[in-house]
Design a protein around this nucleic acid. Sequence first.
DNA 1: ACCTGAACACCGTTCAAGT
DNA 2: ACCTGAACACCGTTCAAGT
Lengths: 201, 201
Amino acid sequence: MSTRDSLISVGAKLLDRGGVVAVTLRAVGRGAGLSHNAPYKHFASKEDLLAAIAARELSWQREAMQRTDAARLPPLQALKMMMRGYVRWALKYPARFKLTFGSWLAGTDELTKAAESTRSLLIEVVKAAQARRDLPRGDPERLASLFLALAHGAADQALAGHLSSEGKGHASPEQLVDDLFGYVSTKGVTPKTGSRRRKTK
Amino acid sequence: MSTRDSLISVGAKLLDRGGVVAVTLRAVGRGAGLSHNAPYKHFASKEDLLAAIAARELSWQREAMQRTDAARLPPLQALKMMMRGYVRWALKYPARFKLTFGSWLAGTDELTKAAESTRSLLIEVVKAAQARRDLPRGDPERLASLFLALAHGAADQALAGHLSSEGKGHASPEQLVDDLFGYVSTKGVTPKTGSRRRKTK
DNA sequence: ACCTGAACACCGTTCAAGT
DNA sequence: ACCTGAACACCGTTCAAGT
């Protein structure tokens, strides 16, 4: 493991422990057994280190989706698993999730590339599901955006505590993902809310 | 306007200009024409000031929705306008939007109250739309969560640049909101992606 | 090429006073 | 009740050296 990689790892650990405010270049150097400004030999600035952490995270996320894809499940089911995995990741590592979508005024190349390759994988799965008539026709990019936006938003709302406040309407992010599949898919999957959908035409 | 309020306003201005990192208690004091630690007489900590800014924003958001509600439009249309307003607000004030859903380890009372009252307004509109059979049956809280999560996620993805990358699949957050209405509503609104839905049963 | 140590400006926070 | 000024520990960043 290169020094650069271990600095990224230390940064991620600090991030998990104390949020983004806990990630200081000095602490990262310390955690790697180096001097307070050794990080500057590997990253141009603090933002640059944070971007590297985010890129690694996004890249792992894509790899997880690729593994799901390689399992050759029915595409609609694969898509659902990918979205659930995304949500679980967000809930398990909130700080990493937040960081990944922080304000990257000028997203690094590394970062945008990782995001785009995730996106295109998703689009392919949507296309495959459409070919089997499990998803309605229409621009696959747009449909992929719809799923991703919902998974993302549901996770973020849950983390903010705006979802599972109190009472019975405690929809988990996973449930919302399932609901969306119910509304969109043409396979007659009934959302658990009790609403009835037509059977496949 | 109380000193406290003007401190909040200065903080919001700094936030818009330079993101959350630009909001320093010292700069806020300076901007209000006070000493560097005058803010401590009104806020317990920096986090406390940020929470107050977020709460004000959330509260404004709710008031905008209430104005829409008061216009007595058909509920489904009112709901759509609220969601679009939410998205437009996020795109116009990204830093405020991000802040509002930052990691509020211990969300202030003020903050959670504002969020809850927004939520309950949304739920009422969903119920009204269901009563008119414009939305399918099912837990209205859950349906409201679905709309809010999508609007939120679409806005956040757009801000991260993960939506309108390049090519034709450049779905705007507003379009995604419209798409969701198309899939969910029972009024036979056709999503612009070209997918056909059944007419009302 | 990679690392250290000193230095600078800035920040959050605390404390003792002032009116 | 509200504000100021000094002080402390900490941080991002830069620079001049060291090997």
